[in-house]
Design a binder for these strands. Structure first.
Length: 344
DNA sequence: GAAGCGTGGAC
DNA sequence: TGTCCAAGCTT
C-alpha cells in the first residue's frame, strides 16, 4: 500500500458521505448488529433487508428470541439459506441470556458462542463496542489484495490471518466505521468484475491500480466439482386431498426443514410403501422433474403422485394445502408444491 | 487443510 | 447455459 498514513482517513471521509442506508445501521444494539452480521454471512444486503426487519419485529430482544420456539424461528429464516446459522444463533443467544444477561463485550467470550467465528467477532466487537478488531470477509480479501497487489490465494484458510494482520496495521480509532467502510467499498466500488477505480477514494494507495493488475486480484484457486444426486419425491394424497410431509434431521443439509417424502432414485415402489407403511395407488406416473442446485451438489427430483387411504406412520403427517405456511420448506420443495397447485 | 452447508443475482 | 460471487462457520 502506498502512503499508508492517510489511508484510513481517506477511506473514512468517503464512507461518511457515501454509506448506504441499512436498518441495522440505525442502532448500536449489539444484539441487532450481531443478528445482521449472521444474516449477512454469504448473503447480499438486498436479500437480508426484509428478513432482518421481520425477524427484529418478531424477536426484538435477546429475551424474546431465547424464549421462542425453534421451529418458529426457523420459519423466519425460510429462503435465506445456510439454516444452521439460525439454529446456532438462537443457541448462542440463549447462552448469552443465561450466562451474561447481555451480549458480552469481551472478544474471547463472544468468540466462544455458537456460530461466532473470527469475522463475526470482529464485526460485532468493532461496530457495537468500537474495539480494534479486524473483520475480514470477502470484500476485505479483495480490497487488500488490490491495495498491496497481493497474490495470496484467498481460498486457503491461512489467508484470513494474513489479511487480518494487514488490517491491524492501518486500523484507526473509529474501528467499527473503518471495518464497515472497507466492506462498503468492496461492495460498491472495489467490486469483483467491474471495479470503478476512477471513483475510488483510495486509488492513490492502490498498488494494483498502479500496476494494472486490478482484475487479477484477488487470486482464488478453487476447484468446484458438484455431485449430481437423483431422488424420487412422493406427493402422497389422502382422501381429504391432504399431502404427506416429514421433517428432516435437525442437523446437516436443510436441517429441521420439512419436505415431501424423498427416496433414493432406484428404490422400488414396493420398498417405499414398506418404509411408509402405506398402500399406494396410481403410483406409476412420473408427474414432474425439478432440478435444484446447491453450492456443492445438484438435486434432480423425479416427482411421483400417489394416493392412499392409510394413516401416516411415525415421523410423517398429512397437511392441507393451506397449512403449508405453518411449516418451513426448502426452495426445492416449494417449487414442487407450486407446480402441483398449478397443474392438479 | 478440506469439505459440507442455500439461495438469488450478475454476467 | 454455466460459473462465480455474496458482511463465513463448523467439523
Amino acid at each position: 500500500m502506498k502512503e499508508r498514513e492517510t489511508f484510513a482517513e481517506n477511506l473514512l471521509s468517503w464512507f461518511d458521505v457515501n454509506k448506504r442506508e441499512m436498518p441495522w445501521r440505525e442502532t448500536k444494539d449489539p444484539y441487532k448488529i450481531w443478528l445482521s452480521e449472521v444474516m449477512l454471512q454469504q448473503t447480499q444486503v438486498n436479500t437480508v433487508r426484509s428478513y432482518y426487519l421481520k425477524f427484529i419485529e418478531r424477536f426484538p430482544t435477546i429475551e424474546t428470541l431465547a424464549e421462542a420456539d425453534e421451529d418458529e424461528v426457523l420459519k423466519y429464516w425460510e429462503g435465506l439459506g445456510y439454516y444452521s446459522r439460525v439454529r446456532n444463533f438462537q443457541s448462542a443467544v440463549r447462552e448469552v441470556a443465561e450466562t451474561y444477561g447481555s451480549v458480552p463485550d469481551d472478544g474471547e467470550q463472544f468468540l466462544a458462542l455458537k456460530g461466532v467465528g473470527p469475522y463475526t467477532r470482529g464485526a460485532v466487537m468493532s461496530i457495537a463496542f468500537n474495539q480494534p478488531y479486524p473483520a475480514v470477509d470477502g470484500n476485505v480479501f479483495r480490497v487488500f489484495s488490490r491495495l498491496d497487489d497481493d497474490a495470496t490465494d484467498t481460498a486457503k484458510p491461512s489467508a484470513r490471518k494474513h489479511f487480518e494482520n494487514k488490517v491491524m496495521q492501518v486500523i484507526p480509532e473509529r474501528a467499527g466505521d473503518f471495518n464497515e467502510a472497507l466492506m462498503e467499498l468492496g461492495a460498491t466500488v472495489c467490486t469483483p468484475r467491474n471495479p470503478i477505480c476512477m471513483l475510488c477514494p483510495v486509488n492513490m494507495h492502490c498498488e494494483a491500480f498502479e500496476a494494472g493488475t486490478v482484475l487479477e486480484r484477488p487470486v482464488k484457486i478453487k476447484k468446484m466439482t458438484r455431485k449430481e444426486l437423483r431422488y424420487k419425491v412422493m406427493l402422497i394424497i389422502n382422501d381429504k386431498g391432504e399431502l404427506l410431509i416429514t421433517q428432516r434431521p435437525k442437523t446437516g443439509l436443510l436441517g429441521g426443514m420439512w419436505q415431501f417424502p424423498m427416496f433414493d432414485e432406484d428404490m422400488p415402489m414396493e420398498d417405499i410403501e414398506a418404509v411408509l407403511d402405506m398402500k399406494l395407488m396410481d403410483k406409476k406416473e412420473k408427474f414432474h422433474t425439478v432440478t435444484h442446485g446447491f453450492t456443492h451438489l445438484d438435486w434432480i427430483l423425479d416427482v411421483y403422485i400417489a394416493r392412499t387411504t392409510d394413516q401416516p406412520g411415525h415421523d410423517f403427517q398429512f397437511i392441507a394445502e393451506n397449512e403449508k405456511e405453518n411449516y418451513t420448506f426448502p426452495v426445492s420443495m416449494s417449487k414442487i408444491f407450486s407446480h402441483y397447485q398449478q397443474v392438479k
